[in-house]
Design a protein around this nucleic acid. Structure first.
Lengths: 182, 182
DNA sequence: TTCCTCATGTAATTCGTTACATGATTGC
DNA sequence: GCAATCATGTAACGAATTACATGAGGAA
């Protein structure tokens, strides 16, 4: 098994919708689910090979381009994927470098802390802006919410939007608190 | 340098407040900053040794118990710590196994998705409850917000509270959407 | 006497990222 | 002709978790 766990299921999940190449999978990660998941080639290709050896995926013909290696999920693969899907998601230990820094910042000057938070806020404002555009796009193009298909991309997006809004609100709250401090 | 980066600064940050043993550092992580940071012995002890060799921390006497190894930050250590503190925090690529599963759940039954989200919500309700208790505790014990000291623990806690509230609100929104679906 | 917390460490494994290496095709 | 994107892969490194190993001291 060697290379397993997360990447494994991310790949099976993508292939469960339609046959893809490793490159396609990377593209899917970067364009569609980037705000809550990421993969890199260094992991995708070895796992693809391992999954094939285990019989969870198989090569399919690709006429247009012989360099491409297109894979499809097998029945066995779908089984394992579904059983993973039904398990509760593992809790992942939180690690926020930003909050770590903030919690250690007693020796910094007020202004430094203020600009630290401001920078953090700006990052989330940008993110929120990106999410907003995606939301617009989904709403007009796919009719998103009405269809099942749409829901499963729209829901994580809404999560991102709410998280970003909440981070921004926190920044504003803290910027106020700092002014009141000492 | 070998073992470096994050753990390194987490340790320096704890020692920047007061001299500690490796065990104390672990305790601090588990009790005070657990909601946004975590460390384990397997990393703490080797890094402690490495930091001492680099002259960023040093052994201090511990009268009560000779088995204890208490370390303090040095001038050089404080310098490096502060320069890290002033750098902007690195963006960390998001990975939410829960959202990954949800985005792949088109083949699951409505009820399964509903209970998936309900479980997720319960986890956050519990977390929020824990944060609430911590907040109460901090407010009465330390006078939290008024003092500088308090602020730097209170601010990350507020972040946790807002995140949890936002996650719970998202769950409710999605539970509604699911009922409207199809 | 048994369990819990204190206390320190090593080894093995798994995981994730980055850098490296190569080359075809497409559009400007 | 050049840059961008398509396309596949390996190697090395860096980091994080888990398991293993040991033992003291105090409380119930």
């Amino acid at each position: 098994m060697s290379v397993k766990n997360k990447t494994r299921y991310a790949i099976l999940g993508v292939l469960n919708s339609s046959p893809c190449t490793g490159y396609d999978i990377k593209k899917y990660c970067d364009r569609i689910i980037a705000h809550f998941w990421n993969e890199n080639y260094g992991h995708i290709y070895p796992v693809l090979k391992a999954l094939q050896e285990e019989g969870l995926i198989e090569r399919v013909e690709e006429e247009t381009n012989d360099r491409k290696k297109k894979y499809a999920i097998t029945g066995k693969g779908r089984e394992e994927f579904l059983s993973w899907l039904k398990e509760p998601a593992h809790y992942q230990p939180a690690r926020s470098e930003f909050l770590l820094k903030l919690s250690f910042s007693k020796d910094l000057h007020k202004d430094e802390i203020r600009s630290m938070i401001l920078k953090y806020k700006e990052d989330y404002v940008k993110k929120l802006d990106g999410y907003g555009k995606m939301e617009e796009y989904m709403k007009q193009k796919e009719g998103a919410l009405e269809t099942q298909q749409g829901f499963f991309l729209y829901a994580p997006l809404r999560y991102g939007i709410r998280s970003a809004e909440s981070a921004i609100a926190w920044c504003d709250e803290m910027l106020n608190e700092i002014d009141l401090l000492k």
